[in-house]
């Protein structure tokens, strides 16, 4: 696997950093890859712009910043606007569909939408929206083993909330898988070969 550059963006309080951290942890601890996470956030505890970058590679990571993105995960309109131009042509955009309305994107970007906040509310707590997004990331990209991400979720959430978070993760994962599958069938029906990800 060559280096994968990921950014997760949203608002403080949405669990942006934890979302990125679980992705990195799954890769670095449970999938035996190298992962580096760098976060940036404003001075406010809630509501300010917040983002984290995660690099995943088979080799040790040197330069610690991402410059262009293979995958962008956004949970706010501002994060979308700020980072969409960093997506590589052919990259993947994952977005919270009730919070982000995508516009122009670099060529060949595959965009996948999920009502993550609504799903989280249906599961019982809006707080787990970030874990739904983790599942969605894993389901759509297939970059990490399912088991690795599950383990990373379980070791990252507060005790007593494991079941809820696992359900949130699986909801996002299955929704992601379904979308990838339906696109595959759609393109097969149109006689096209399935678009392979830039990654």
């Amino acid at each position: 696997m060559s280096k994968i550059d990921i950014r997760v963006g949203g608002l403080g309080g949405q669990g942006v950093i934890l979302c990125a951290s679980i992705i990195g942890k799954a890769a670095a601890i449970h999938d035996n890859k190298h992962a580096t996470l760098i976060q940036s956030f404003g001075p406010e505890a809630r509501g300010s712009a917040c983002s984290a970058q995660v690099m995943i590679d088979d080799h040790p990571i040197g330069y610690p910043y991402v410059k262009s993105l293979d995958v962008l995960v956004v949970m706010s309109r501002d994060a979308y606007k700020q980072f969409v131009t960093q997506l590589k042509p052919g990259g993947i955009l994952l977005y919270e569909e009730e919070l982000v309305t995508p516009g122009a994107m670099p060529p060949g970007v595959s965009a996948y939408a999920i009502p993550a906040t609504r799903f989280a509310e249906q599961l019982g707590r809006r707080l787990v929206l970030n874990i739904v997004m983790v599942g969605f990331f894993a389901g759509v990209t297939g970059l990490l083993s399912e088991q690795a991400v599950e383990k990373a979720v379980l070791s990252s959430v507060p005790k007593g909330t494991e079941d809820l978070n696992l359900r949130a993760y699986r909801k996002g994962f299955e929704y992601g898988r379904e979308q990838v599958e339906s696109r595959r069938l759609e393109s097969a029906a149109n006689g096209q070969t399935q678009q392979s990800f830039a990654i």
């Binding site: 990195g24 670095a28 601890i29 190298h34 992962a35 996470l37 760098i38 976060q39 610690p64």
Partner: peptide, 9 residues
């Protein structure tokens, strides 16, 4: 700051 706030294994 980068080494301090960078997360790795």
């Amino acid at each position: 700051e980068v080494v301090g706030h960078m997360t790795e294994r």
